[in-house]
Design a protein around this nucleic acid. Sequence first.
DNA 1: CTTGAACCTGACATGCATGTCAGATCTTAC
DNA 2: GTAAGATCTGACATGCATGTCAGGTTCAAG
Lengths: 117, 117
Amino acid sequence: MRIGELARLTGVSPRSLRWYGEQSLLRETRTSGGHREYDDDAVERVRIIQVLFAAGVPARHVAGILPCVDTGTTTPAMVARLEEERTRLRAQAAELAATLERLDEVVVETRLRLLAA
Amino acid sequence: MRIGELARLTGVSPRSLRWYGEQSLLRETRTSGGHREYDDDAVERVRIIQVLFAAGVPARHVAGILPCVDTGTTTPAMVARLEEERTRLRAQAAELAATLERLDEVVVETRLRLLAA
DNA sequence: CTTGAACCTGACATGCATGTCAGATCTTAC
DNA sequence: GTAAGATCTGACATGCATGTCAGGTTCAAG
């Protein structure tokens, strides 16, 4: 598929998709005229990239995490990086959950206070 | 306590703590000489702020979420904003968890591939 | 073959949180 | 009161992902 369709399917702007390509996060082939061409896997891949970005993983780390970017090869360094980042994300998810709990408490307290007023 | 101690306790730079103050994320009083003074709650508060930042909540939203910043007042708008953000964070936490699952799969697959090689 | 939509490259701009540096002022221990 | 360390303000710089704009090329439908 071409960049417009991928953008539509993922909600990510063409500008960003081109940048993902530059950063080797996304595999792209070219038509004879130079237009980018993506295969169907790209949709899922873009979604994962977005989640990782939202979790604060910088692009240069994502490139080191997601295997098979260009060559299909996977190095032990990639596995190490992946496990490392996975650990970090687990910790972050736990902290986020704890903070959500606290926010829940605040909501309840605040509602009570407003009811009393 | 003063800014240096708060920085040490939280791991957040004095520069950032001053900026939190500017953005009304953090309550600060001043000594007669103009130095910032924080009370003990600030430590916990800074930690929460950091978790929210890591979850992608921009500072201007944080200011609207955490109640009682200066005045101790809490408006219905704050509650609405808080619940809204809470919903977003829950969705994000779920997505993050799903992505972690997928990364786990990739780790296993990759290990197998490496073992086979 | 033409035309309008989609795409290309390249450059500059933005928002956000933080880093860094300079020069001045405050605080505290002696 | 003085010296050393902590803090102040204000300004400029950085990294990251994205937005935007301009001028040109390609694609596909008629």
